[in-house]
Design a protein around this nucleic acid. Structure first.
Length: 713
DNA sequence: TTAGGGTTAG
């Protein structure tokens, strides 16, 4: 995304109607140029239509956002969660002038579909053409010289081809006919077909041909091009064509406009979206459900709760009734913004308004309830779905199963899974369903059941994926069945499953659990096939002679290659392996230092005047012990250096209670570690996973535990 | 489906 953003912010120099108007209504910013604008033509913009300075679209829109759209100037370059300029309604400063607009208020009209009396033979021909392996020959046979198809017949046939290659061939055929009226509509149909085939290169080429042949591009052309670019993730291309539209003097209508709002939203350019939205509203546009869906999704992705409330308020004020898509988008958005309560009340509002929830609504809600650990709400919703006969599909079933896996709801998961296995169900268990079941048994310490699930999956011909193998390997590793875990890995390799970073992290964690010697070597043998660099780093860590600088370089290289979400688990597991496999004792500390250096453990330490605390919630057991030891060592340093006065009266450690029913519980391991050390931390009664010690007790303990020289060790 | 925009899973 970062790359995309960089490549889509080129300096754009366009005569944007907001700034250098091509049309009379947009004269408010360029008072002196109003007499020249009428001379502007669509195809040859003159020099004085170009903005005086080269700047990006966002820069060009900034003056507008400052003067018209908000009372609070915001930085145009803000890229991190800019607050939406919410209730600031556009104020029109000069009501005597017509409101400038950024979009045509009337949607482009379409020609009514003409009914063809000879539809039947045409239907047969369209089928023949659709199935023909050689379309040019089939067309030559169907339309010999002198028997060209009528315009409407050609359009109908073109529409029915369902293949972008054939659409292009059909277009070539029409071009070869003498005097065939090849107008914008034909190109639009082919563009749509290319879009379905994700053929961005051909889309741009064909649009270029339209320009060369002087076939006018209309709103439908532009919106098809822009959505094709989106589908191919060429957001730069989408913006390029949108800007070209203005350059040639064509005003977007609401369809093109909301397509572009979505482009800006997907680029995370929320400032532009809000500006463009408010700008169009000021010009008299009444946004519809699609526009609100785009805005709602964008605010949800940004976790912006105020933004979501703004969308709801705008819809209410403008009297736009949300449809199912808008509700779905907003429910999902509120979930992403961490507001499960609002998601639930939106859902109730939806049902009360008579809008039927569909599979997507229910999938989003179940996911939200699961994440919020609202098992009661989730199960009640499931009962309600069944009693109301709301639509269910396999994605919803799998989401329910995953929720059960996350919340440890084994019985409920088994019922759901049995339901899916019923022969009359179209929602048959797939690899996701089996993975969820393996996960449930794995977390519940039932490796035999998990293995049975895996075997059943293979028997039923359901191809395992990397996630199902990872879950089973983790489960077997935890149960100490290393040989079985290795066999599952080998099965995965034989079936052509490509190991990903999560599987590597899983193997690392299994390696940490192994007994030194043969078992570890077996697991590392697997890991070497998946990520030999990690195994290389482990060898370096084991070697006394390797210096910290070398470790640091290799660590950084590996983390840069790894997906962001696995970097901390990698570091945790590496520390565990070092502690459990007899590596030089300083290695765990070096790794923790590197993890801190590269920001893998944000918020590990916190200080208030009254209390210093250590937050171990995202650490593995080994990493937590290492972090605790380092902390104690640094506190001992303060004592030795006679800086005791600077210490607070209280110290706390937080491991988290592990809300997961089956979680191994860092709290448990850490409690026994503390008692082994005879450290004076005591569990706080009302808060499990929270430990405190007084300064007095801690200093006493430090003095009895460490020698004065230890701090320099 | 019938020339154009927005919504579901580790």
């Amino acid at each position: 995304m970062a790359l995309l953003c960089a490549s889509t912010s080129p300096t754009i120099s366009i005569p944007h109607p907001l700034l250098s108007p091509l049309k009379p209504p947009a004269t408010f910013l360029c008072h002196s140029s109003s007499s020249k604008t009428s001379a502007a033509t669509a195809s040859s913009p003159t020099a004085d239509q170009t903005p005086s300075s080269s700047s990006s679209l966002s820069d060009q829109l900034l003056p507008l956002s400052l003067t018209l759209l908000t009372s609070q100037p915001t930085s145009p370059s803000a890229t991190v969660a800019p607050p939406p300029r919410l209730p600031a309604k556009p104020t029109w400063t000069n009501p005597s002038k017509p409101r400038p607009t950024v979009l045509a208020l009337r949607r482009q009209s379409r020609r009514p579909f003409s009914h063809n009396p000879s539809l039947r033979p045409l239907t047969e021909l369209s089928r023949t053409l659709r199935l023909s392996p050689d379309l040019p020959s089939a067309l030559a046979a169907a339309f010999p010289p002198g028997h060209s198809p009528s315009r409407d017949d050609a359009l109908l046939l073109l529409n029915s081809l369902r293949s972008w290659q054939k659409s292009l061939q059909f277009l070539d055929f029409l071009r070869s006919l003498p005097d065939f009226p090849l107008d914008t509509i034909f190109y639009n149909v082919v563009l749509k077909s290319l879009r379905a085939g994700h053929q961005w290169h051909h889309v741009e080429r064909l649009a270029g041909e339209m320009i060369d042949a002087s076939v006018p591009l209309d709103n439908i052309t532009y919106s098809t091009i822009i959505t094709a670019a989106k589908r191919c993730r060429r957001f730069d291309g989408a913006l390029h064509w949108f800007e070209r539209m203005y350059r040639t003097g064509l005003m977007p209508d609401e369809v093109t406009y909301s397509a572009v709002l979505d482009v800006y939203a997907r680029l995370g350019r929320r400032e532009e979206v809000v500006t463009l939205y408010e700008r169009a509203c000021a010009g008299g546009w009444r946004p519809d459900a699609v526009a609100f869906s785009v805005l709602g999704k964008m605010f949800g992705e940004a976790g912006d709760y105020d933004g979501i409330r703004y969308v709801l308020k705008e819809m209410k004020e403008l009297g736009v009734k949300p449809n199912a898509v808008v509700y779905n988008t907003l429910i999902q958005a509120t979930g992403k913004a961490g507001k499960p309560g609002l998601a639930r009340s939106l859902f109730e509002e939806m049902v009360a308004a008579g809008v039927s929830p569909n599979e997507k609504t229910l999938t989003s809600l179940i996911k939200i309830y699961g994440k919020a650990r609202w098992s009661r709400d989730a199960l009640e919703l499931w009962e309600r779905m069944k009693s109301k006969g709301w639509p269910v599909d396999f994605i919803l079933y799998n989401t329910l199963l995953s929720m059960c896996a996350d919340l440890g709801l084994e019985d409920e998961a088994e019922k759901l899974f049995e339901d899916m296995r019923r022969p009359d169900r179209y929602a048959r268990p797939d690899s996701w369903s089996y993975t969820a079941m393996i996960n449930i048994y794995g977390s519940g310490g039932k490796p035999d059941r998990a293995v049975k699930m895996f075997e059943e999956m293979l028997e039923k011909g359901v191809e395992p994926n990397v996630m199902s193998c990872t879950c089973l390997i983790r489960c077997l590793g935890k149960a100490g069945r290393i040989g079985d875990a290795v066999r599952v890995f080998e099965t995965a390799m034989e079936r052509g499953i490509r190991p990903d970073d999560r599987l590597c992290g899983c193997l690392l964690s299994v390696a940490a659990l192994c007994e030194e010697g043969g078992e570890t070597d077996m697991v590392l043998g697997c890991l070497e096939k998946a990520n030999d660099r990690l195994v290389g780093l482990l060898k370096m860590l084991r070697d006394e002679q390797v210096g910290f600088g070398e470790i640091k370089d290799e660590f950084r290289g590996i983390m840069n290659e790894a997906a962001v979400e696995v970097r901390r688990p990698f570091c945790n597991c590496l520390i565990d392996v070092c502690r459990n496999q007899g590596h030089p004792s300083r290695r765990a500390n070096e790794l923790l230092r590197l993890g801190n250096l590269y920001g893998l453990y944000p918020g590990l330490h916190a200080r208030t005047p009254e209390e210093w605390s250590l937050n171990l919630r995202s650490l593995s057991v080994g990493a937590a012990k290492t972090a605790f030891e380092e902390w104690m060592r640094s506190l001992w340093g303060s004592v030795v250096e006679q800086e005791e006065e600077a210490l607070p009266l209280s110290f706390s450690v937080c491991t988290g209670s592990g809300t997961h029913k089956f979680s191994q519980g860092l709290a448990t391991s850490f409690t026994s570690h503390l008692s082994k050390l005879a450290a004076p931390f005591r569990q706080v009664d009302e808060k499990s996973g929270s430990f405190v010690a007084s300064k007095e007790d801690l200093v006493l303990w430090l003095r009895s535990t460490f020698s004065p020289a230890f701090v320099n060790a």
